[in-house]
Design a protein around this nucleic acid. Structure first.
Length: 229
DNA sequence: CGCCAGGCCGTGT
DNA sequence: ACACGGCATGGC
């Protein structure tokens, strides 16, 4: 079986095992965006500490962030690590929204897909995964999100030639592979499928696909062909 | 104590 | 183009 069909089957297996995830875990679009920045190379439990601090400071909105000094913002998000860089990045995002989109996330979301992706990638602290997470989960654009868990799954199950280095080229391969895996589905469902697939990837990754393999009980090891290396 | 976490960026080759 | 190290804190 080819790699796109194997990845599509993995989605079905994960969905059967874990059910719908209904991501992203946040109330508002801007909260999704904050979470996307804060969770970079950081566990979600640590992100929740920062989000709780921001909530208490009434800073879970564009207006809330605008009223904070950079030092105060840095202090509030300290629990999730890399606070100096992430605070500057979040501030740069808000300034971009204010200067170029009249402070409106809706206007940002209404930008054509290719322009929008390029604009996000040009922001400090925004690489491909963060850009695509914002596009998919905050701005409702139907684009796949690839991450380190997906890279490990695809590498260890040898869906693409090994090794699979951590670089931009690999990211783009994983992104394209995911898009191809759902290409046969109705276009109307792509958004929902990309949403669920990334969420399911993270769920199975946290439980069974760490840096040091802990594959026991992984639902992806359902036959010999899919056993993990 | 050590390793790990839902990346990104600057530098050297 | 690619490898490599720095960035930082909290959970286990």
């Amino acid at each position: 079986m080819n790699s796109t069909r194997r990845l599509r089957k993995m989605h079905d297996t994960l969905f059967a095992a874990y059910g719908p995830q209904e991501w992203w875990p946040a109330r508002t679009r801007f909260e999704v965006i904050l979470g996307a920045y804060l969770t970079q190379n950081t566990s979600w439990t640590s992100v929740e500490l920062s989000l709780a601090n921001l909530r208490k400071a009434r800073a879970l909105s564009l207006a809330g962030i605008r009223h904070l000094t950079l030092a105060r913002l840095t202090e509030l998000i300290r629990p999730s690590g890399f606070a100096t860089r992430k605070a500057a990045a979040i501030r740069a995002f808000v300034q971009m929204i204010d200067r170029e989109y009249s402070g409106s996330l809706s206007k940002l979301a209404a930008t054509p897909a290719t322009t929008l992706e390029a604009r996000l990638l040009a922001l400090p602290g925004v690489g491909p995964e963060t850009a695509h997470a914002i596009l998919l989960y905050a701005l409702d654009h139907p684009t796949p999100v690839a991450d380190e868990y997906l890279r490990r799954i695809v590498e260890r199950h040898a869906l693409l030639p090994n090794p699979l280095p951590k670089n931009r080229r690999t990211y783009d391969q994983l992104h394209a592979l995911t898009r191809a895996a759902f290409a046969a589905d109705p276009a109307q469902r792509h958004h929902r499928l990309f949403n669920e697939f990334h969420a399911l990837t993270v769920v199975v990754g946290k439980a069974h696909c760490g840096r040091t393999a802990r594959c026991a009980g992984c639902p992806l090891a359902y036959d010999l062909e899919n056993s993990c290396n």
